[in-house]
Simulated assay, not measured.
Amino acid sequence: MSKGLSGKVALITGGAKGIGRGIALRLAQEGMHIALVDLHEDKLKATQAEIEACNVKASIFVADISQLDQVTAAIEDAYSKLGSFDVMINNAGIAQVQALNDVTPDEFRQITDINFGGVLWGIQAAAKKFQTLKQKGKIINACSIAGHEGFAMLSVYSATKFAVRALTQAAAKEYAHSGIMVNSYCPGVVGTDMWVEIDQRFSKLTGAKIGETFKKYAEGIALGRTETPDDVAALVAFLASEDADYITGQSIITDGGMVYR
C-alpha cells in the first residue's frame, strides 16, 4: 500500500475509461475516495460502481475539461460530496494523428484546448482550492513519451505534451511555497481505445494494415510487452502518496523502455 492515501480524495478527469479508469481503481484499492469527471455519464456510472465495490466513496460529474468554469464546478462538487480534496489528476486528453501539412485550425484548437487547456485549467482550479483550504496538495498531469520526443504524424499531439511538461515545471515552481507538488506521468504504448484509434488513423493515412502501427511501436519496447493502465496507475499512486512528498516538477517516463532521458 502507498503511504498516506487512505481516506483522502482524488479527482480524476477522463476517469470513466482507459488509463483514467485504471488510475481510479488503483487509488480506490489504496483506500482513496474518488471523484470521476468525464463527458460520458453512462461510463462514469459503470466505473463508479466498480470503485464503490472497493468499499470507498465515489462521485461522478459530467464536464468538459477545456472549460475552466466546468473544471472549477467539478472540484466543488467533489469537495461537497466527498468532504475533502487532496489530489488532482489531470488525465483527460485526446490523440490526433495527422500529417503536419494537413493540420487544420479546427484540429489545432481542439487538441490544444483539451490536452493543454484542460491541464492548465485543472492546475489552476485545483491550486486555488488547495490555497483556499490552506492545505498542501498534489497535482498530477497526463503527459506522454511524446512530451519528451516528437513523433511523426503526431506533431501537434506531441507539441501539447511538451507544453504539459513545461507547464508542470512552471507550476511546481509557482506553487511550491503553498506546499503544492506538481508532477506528470508519461506513458508509452498503452493497450487502450486511444491506441486503437491511433492505429486506425495511421492505417488511413499511410496505408498500413490495421494493427501494423501498434505492432511496430510495441516491438520497440525493451521489456517486451505493451503497457497496461495498471502500469500507469502504479506510478500515479506513488506520486499521490507521501512517499513522493519531495518530488515536484518532474515528468516521469513509464514506457517499458522506449524513450530514454
Rank of each mutant, 00 (worst) to 15 (best):
62 V>K: 14
88 M>L: 06
144 S>N: 00
156 V>T: 14
162 F>T: 08
191 G>D: 15
60 I>P: 12
47 T>K: 12
162 F>H: 15
112 T>D: 00
92 A>F: 00
154 L>A: 07
20 G>C: 06
119 V>R: 08
9 V>I: 09
49 A>T: 11
81 K>G: 03
189 V>S: 14
204 K>I: 15
101 N>M: 13
29 Q>L: 10
60 I>M: 13
214 F>C: 01
192 T>N: 02
177 H>I: 14
244 A>S: 08
163 A>R: 02
111 I>Q: 02
63 A>V: 03
206 T>V: 02
43 K>D: 15
129 K>D: 04
67 Q>N: 14
230 D>K: 14
173 K>E: 12
133 L>M: 15
258 M>P: 02
188 G>W: 03
216 K>V: 04
173 K>C: 06
179 G>E: 06
258 M>Y: 05
10 A>W: 01
246 Y>W: 14
256 G>Y: 12
176 A>P: 05
243 D>I: 04
241 S>V: 09
215 K>W: 00
10 A>P: 01
164 V>R: 00
191 G>H: 13
180 I>K: 03
237 A>Y: 04
235 L>S: 03
92 A>S: 06
104 T>C: 04
13 T>C: 06
174 E>G: 08
174 E>H: 11
99 A>H: 13
107 E>P: 03
38 D>T: 10
240 A>V: 07
190 V>R: 08
171 A>I: 11
166 A>S: 15
229 P>Y: 03
145 I>V: 13
39 L>A: 04
230 D>H: 09
18 G>I: 08
89 I>Y: 07
143 C>W: 03
43 K>T: 15
172 A>E: 04
225 R>V: 06
193 D>Y: 04
40 H>A: 15
97 V>F: 04
58 A>Q: 05
134 K>Y: 02
171 A>M: 10
144 S>L: 00
261 R>T: 13
95 A>F: 09
192 T>Y: 00
80 S>K: 14
152 A>V: 09
249 G>D: 01
60 I>H: 09
182 V>A: 06
191 G>W: 10
192 T>C: 05
13 T>E: 02
206 T>Q: 01
112 T>H: 06
174 E>P: 11
216 K>W: 04
261 R>G: 13
55 N>C: 13
186 C>I: 05
71 V>I: 10
205 L>W: 05
159 A>G: 13
162 F>A: 05
70 Q>A: 10
187 P>Y: 07
27 L>P: 00
241 S>L: 09
192 T>A: 02
5 L>C: 05
255 D>A: 09
161 K>P: 04
37 V>Q: 13
212 E>V: 05
73 A>K: 08
131 Q>N: 06
197 E>V: 10
178 S>P: 01
219 E>W: 00
108 F>T: 07
91 N>D: 04
26 R>H: 12
103 V>Y: 11
226 T>K: 13
157 Y>L: 10
179 G>M: 06
201 R>C: 12
202 F>A: 08
48 Q>I: 03
109 R>T: 12
9 V>W: 00
96 Q>N: 12
179 G>H: 09
89 I>W: 02
116 F>D: 12
97 V>K: 03
174 E>N: 11
184 S>G: 04
61 F>I: 08
109 R>E: 15
233 A>F: 03
81 K>S: 10
117 G>Y: 10
114 I>K: 02
101 N>T: 14
97 V>T: 08
